[in-house]
Structures are given as structure tokens and as C-alpha cells.
Design a protein around this nucleic acid. Sequence first.
DNA 1: TGACGTCAAGATCCG
DNA 2: CGGATCTTGACGTCA
Length: 419
Amino acid sequence: MSIGYACIVAGNQELSLKSCTLKNATPDKLEEITAYNLDILEKILEYNIRNRIQLFRISSDIVPFASKKEVIFPWQDLMKEKLERIGEKAKENQIRLSMHPGQYTVLNSPDPDVVERAVLDLVYHTEFLDLCHMKSDCKIILHIGGAYGDKITAKERFIKNYKLLPQNVKNRLVIENDDKIYHIQDVLEIADQLGIPVIFDVFHHEVNPPKENKIVLEWLSLVKKTWQKKDGIPKIHYSQQLLHGKPGAHSETISLSDFMDFFYKIQPNDVDIMLEVKDKNLSAVKCILATDKKGNIKSLENEWSLYKYNVLEHSHSIYLEIRSLLKDKSGYPVIQFYKLLECAMQTPVDIGQQRNALQHVWGYFKDQVTEQEKKKFMTMLEEYDQHKNDVAKSKRYLFRLLEKYPEPYLKNSYFFTEL
DNA sequence: TGACGTCAAGATCCG
DNA sequence: CGGATCTTGACGTCA
């Protein structure tokens, strides 16, 4: 079983991809951005390796406008070596990669132009994974598309158009239930006709269940049967409702207790779980550590080093509680640790503690900065006390000081990330 | 025609 | 001029 996340590394700006607008998309610009993005992807894989994350979705934006036929840019040839290196790294470390064209790739549209673009887009995604030499268990996930007032015909059109796809696309394509139109029963029906695997999105299923009343475990068991040996371990999508958000909106972080309830319910020895959540890798690490049977306190100490100043901003008492929780070096209180962490992050920031956290962090700089830099920070603190500016300004300033005075402990921490 | 979702690029504003 | 903040882009469907 692997647990993973999609596309973006939270808490690390250095690992974000570049893009451009269509109007600026010259071949040179595209080559520059793509080369940059692939180097970043390699670094993201290294991050995933360090954190034992073996499931990862590559952003469709990795090669900008790759599937637009007006944009001529032979990325397949230009990036051959980089793609091979990425594939090697993934394989060596048993990382399962996937890609997921968004809601605008619609294979079952009645408009032939839309279908043509969808096919080109699927071909792009397939070529990307093929050029990395990934096995056929590295999938491309697609939704069924629109209903156009006649779901039966729309389903038939999906099936018809699927059959026209090139074989290498078919080798990777899997279909997923969505939160609006095609529920899991629809998708299983299509999958049965085509003989292709189904991704069961547990959250979409909650939002958009079929009329037929089966428990989640029964649907899951039907879904698992659609995966053959060559397709790898069945994969599911898991996310949670954003409280006070629109139905279907993804939560900021994964609530660990809800995740663990689900985890024990499904006994997921033989599924991979892709998390769809705003804090991305942060939740993936949480769920991986929480389900690790032989976990080590060192992992929690490392997590603590990343979150401690954020916790301090919200609650001094929980800060102390976690510190004491981690004192016993023989235990592995992972559930309790994240319970406290989640609790702290849900507590509104305490103005006084926020100032306290700023000063803690300032402690890393105070003996090495110039008088001028010191003065500037002190002025900011004064203004902060008089409510003339917000904490974000001081944080930005401290973050900028990190470039001049490198402090890896601080740089890695989430203090400068909005959580 | 605008909302939907997403987030960096691009544009504009500010001191 | 650099930095902060607001707006646009790119996609297809549906009300």
C-alpha cells in the first residue's frame, strides 16, 4: 500500500513549476520552462524519496501547452534525456507515477473539435509517461465528461471514442467517478464494457452516490476487480469535505481520525491511496507515518521541527504538550501527536503568541544581522504592536533574511507557509 | 453570459 | 524602482 499526493509540494516554493500565457508561448520560452519544470520534477521525486512517499501525480502543466496543435515545440526529442532520468529515479525508488487531465479534457463531447483536443491531450499525457519508460501501472485518470441532457447516449459516445484511441493511450487510461454526473455505478458499467480499470473516488462517491444502495466496501470490491495484474495495485482517491465549504470542496488538511476510521474499515493492504487535499504532501506524510507499523520517534521529531513555530503561533499550551509528548524516546505516539497538531492549527492565532513565535525565529538572526537589519525588524515589531501592520509583513522580512543568512532548520519549516 | 476550479503570470498600484 | 496586491488566463459544461 502506498499513500501519495497530487502535483504540488506544499511548504516549499523552490519546488513549484513555471508556466506562461499562450501569447508568450514561443518555442524558446516553452523549451526553457519545460527544461526548468523537469529539473524541478526530479527534485520533487527526491523530496518524495526522502519522505517515503511512493505515489505521486505529475501536474499536467509540466509541459505547457503540450497538447495544443498550434503550439509547435518538439519536447519529446528535446527532453528525452531528462524524461529518462526522471523515469529511472522513479523506478529505482518504486515510486508509482500518474497523471490526471482536468475537467476540461472531455472525451465524450458531442463537439468533434472538443473530442479531438481531448485525444491530443490524452496522447500528450501518455507520451510523457511512455518517454519516462514507466510501466503500465502508471495511469492516466480521466472523468467521463458531460451528460448533455442524455446520459445514456453520452456514455455510449464515451465508449465509442475510447475505442478509437491509440493503443498506448488505452494501456494507461483509467476512469473515475465524479461529484456531479457519473457516479461509481455509471463508471463501473462503462469500465465493464471496455475492460478498463476504475479509480474509486471515495469523496465524490459520498457527494454523488448511485441510487443502488451498496456499502462503500461493496463498491470497492467491485472496483478492485477491474484492475488486472498489468494495471498494478488498485488505486483510489481519498479526500474530505472542507468544513463550511461548498459540498465537494476539498479540506485544507486530512483529519487523521477520519482517515484512520476509513483505513481500518477498508483494510487497505492491496490499494494505493491518492489524497486530494490542499496541504498535499503534508497530509501524505501524516497518513504515511500514522499507518507505519514500525514507526520511529525520529520521524515525529522531524515533523515537529517543521511545525513547531506554527503551533506556537496558535497555542502555547499545545506547544508545551507536544514537547512533553515527544520526551519519551522509546515510544511512537503518532496519533496523539497529529491530534494535538491538528487541534493547535484549528485554534485561532493568538496575537501575543504570534509575536512570541516571531521572536523565537528572530533568535536565529539576531547575532548575525547588521544594525540596520536589526532596526528594521524592531520597527516592524513596534508597528505590529500598534496594529499598524500584520504578522505577514514581518514574516516576509524574516524569510528574505534567510537568503542572506541561510538557516536550513528555519528554511525547511512551515513557519513561512500559510497553513 | 457567467460560474465553476486552479494558481502562476501579468498588470497595476504604492511608497 | 522594488515590492505588494489585484486581475487575467486557459480549458468545456451547464444554468
